[in-house]
Design a protein around this nucleic acid. Structure first.
Lengths: 344, 344
DNA sequence: ACAATTTGCGAAATCGTTTGCGCAAATGTG
DNA sequence: CACATTTGCGCAAACGATTTCGCAAATTGT
């Protein structure tokens, strides 16, 4: 079942292939009459453009690549990626762009996927969905010259790299101050992988808030914990040494869910005994028991805006690389409680 | 920065472009000596193949399309899709295939994405990640003739459609019997969207188990509930009328989490007062409070196998359309409790 | 009515590959 | 040594679009 090409249409409509092409792109140099005629024939014959052919000559693909972080780890368990994907999708769909995602499992494999994408001209631009220390992808992209945007605060010279991000230090500061305002003084900070920029920024925000309010961030209280067991060990250690904070800032809903569980196992109730404020406001925070107060980072928007930046840049390259900041909103639910300062 | 083409390499290496092409595909008709020479030049000049050009002549794209279900709804909140995506990715990466996903938000938009993909020859095959009543995509694909596989039990003539699925009726039956074996008699069934095949199959399994054990499935007990509020209303209604079952089989971890929350709000504890068994065994079931006993449907495998089926079919089309069943495993955790039969 | 524009369309080159065919040199056969 | 085969590679035609250039017809101006 041979597909119908532009030539077939041309023949059928008694015009030249070039005319058909111009009709497709709605060129003003073609009369309405011929346009109508040609379009009718296209319709009748069931013509669909062959993108490979078009892309070949136009040297563009109308597709953007998305590089995920190491997918073997939590990347895809975590509702973050899907949600940013959803935002990206939405804008791409509007603009008739396609999406191609990396499939690699290891960092090395992902890097190779990326160079294949750009060297093989499979994409017009990329979205890097994370920002991480010692990552090879971003440096490669900057000197490849291809348009790209990173979701998160890029490591290195920011003005050469487009990015869309939250103000994570501010957000974490607010989260911490929220707890402080409720009377908490012993506040813990839990994040997942410490080599991602988000973790660092949020830690900074936490520290700033603590300092600002003359609270010493006990080093015992800041932890990087990424799976179930370490979390369990941590709370056990903390309660056994009688050092359990009264509040926790947790950089991720999944980790918060985990914390909730571990606390429950030690018969510590939230929010009665300890308060928790988390990040991302995914469906998990809504449905946790109790529902979690969470900083909404507007992940969907993050995705949407990054796609917008990228596609803008692809369509009309600009001199300076902008960076857009998506505001965060604190969504209050039931995991935080005011405490009355007893001693101290 | 003009990319280096096969011709450039040819010139530099003093051979014809066709020779370079044959070196790339490692044709046996080229001597080892020239192969070495050419490869060296390719390396030096930094040659990368242009896929558009190759695809144009080969009429293949080495990419598969993935059609998601309506993403505005829960699709991407739910860890299911990401996890099957991860499985698909893994196999695609092995086989050096690319992935392109639909971006549409509405069913109509998704359908259009699909026809664009196939008519525009952007993909060699598709994976439909759901199976749903009255869906236009699958029928379109069957008569387009393009290879595709559906994740789930296809509606309609199964032997014309490749699919990979769990035995969902069996799985639901086992889940229900698990509860029955623990002594439960009043068992509820909660699923999300009733128009998806999974829901139907699991409902059937539930009903079979009930019948088999001479338990009447009170119509009050089978519910389709897809967001927070309806769930809340449901449990309120049930407890107010004193009709709360002692056990629930819930077709999805997210819904189970939701149920957990609603029960908690009414001060009903799990598993003391009611037992819950859910499906999918995502990270959520591990981290819920209490951790949920869940039927592991091996979502990753589902994705992996579907990619395998599809790519096999693409590479060497076969006469008959196979369907593969991924076994389910019940993962016991803490959400189910044996009950002593009191009255009856 | 004739030159000057403008409008509408076609011819052909091009994008970077693959591939069928053919030709020369190298090898094998008797 | 003459002839048949095989081996190694180049030529040129696709693949299906876009785009530059130019030519004829239609329109305008005087």
């Amino acid at each position: 079942m041979m597909a119908v090409t532009i030539k077939d249409v041309a023949k059928q409509a008694n015009v030249a292939p070039s005319t058909v092409s111009r009709v497709i792109s709605d060129s003003p140099r073609i009369s309405e009459k011929t346009k109508k005629k040609v379009r009718k024939v296209m319709e009748e014959m069931g013509y669909y453009i062959n993108h490979n052919a078009r892309n070949l000559v136009q040297k563009s693909t109308q597709t953007i690549g998305i590089v995920m972080k190491n997918s073997t780890s939590a990347s895809l368990h975590d509702p973050f990626f899907p949600e940013v994907l959803r935002g990206i999708s939405a804008y791409c769909n509007q603009q008739d762009f396609n999406i191609s995602i990396t499939t690699g499992e290891s960092e090395e494999a992902i890097f190779n996927d990326v160079v294949k994408m750009v060297q093989g001209k499979r994409v017009d631009g990329l979205i890097v969905s994370y920002s991480k220390k010692d990552d090879k992808v971003v440096p490669y992209l900057v000197d490849s010259g291809i348009p790209f945007v990173v979701v998160g605060k890029p490591i290195g010279k920011a003005n050469e790299i487009m990015s869309v991000d939250n103000d994570n230090v501010q957000a974490a500061k607010e989260a911490t101050e929220y707890l402080i305002r409720l009377g908490h003084q012993k506040i813990g900070f839990i994040s997942e992988q410490p080599d991602y920029e988000v973790s660092i920024a949020r830690l900074t925000g936490y520290q700033q808030a603590m300092q600002l309010h003359q609270l010493k961030p006990d080093p015992n209280y800041v932890r990087h914990v990424d799976t179930k067991e370490p979390m369990k060990d941590m709370v056990e250690e903390l309660v056994d040494n009688n050092k359990l904070p009264t509040g926790f800032v947790v950089t991720d809903d999944i980790a918060a869910l985990n914390l909730l569980l571990c606390l429950r196992e030690k018969n510590i109730s939230v929010p009665e005994d300890v308060s928790i404020i988390s990040f991302n406001n995914t469906i998990i925070s809504k449905l946790a028991t109790p529902p979690l107060t969470s900083i909404d980072t507007q992940i969907y928007q993050l995705g949407y805006e990054s796609a917008k930046c990228l596609i803008d840049e692809i369509k009309t390259p600009s001199m300076f690389k902008k960076t857009v900041i998506i505001p965060t909103i604190i969504e209050e639910r039931e995991s935080c409680k005011k405490i009355v300062a007893l001693a101290e």
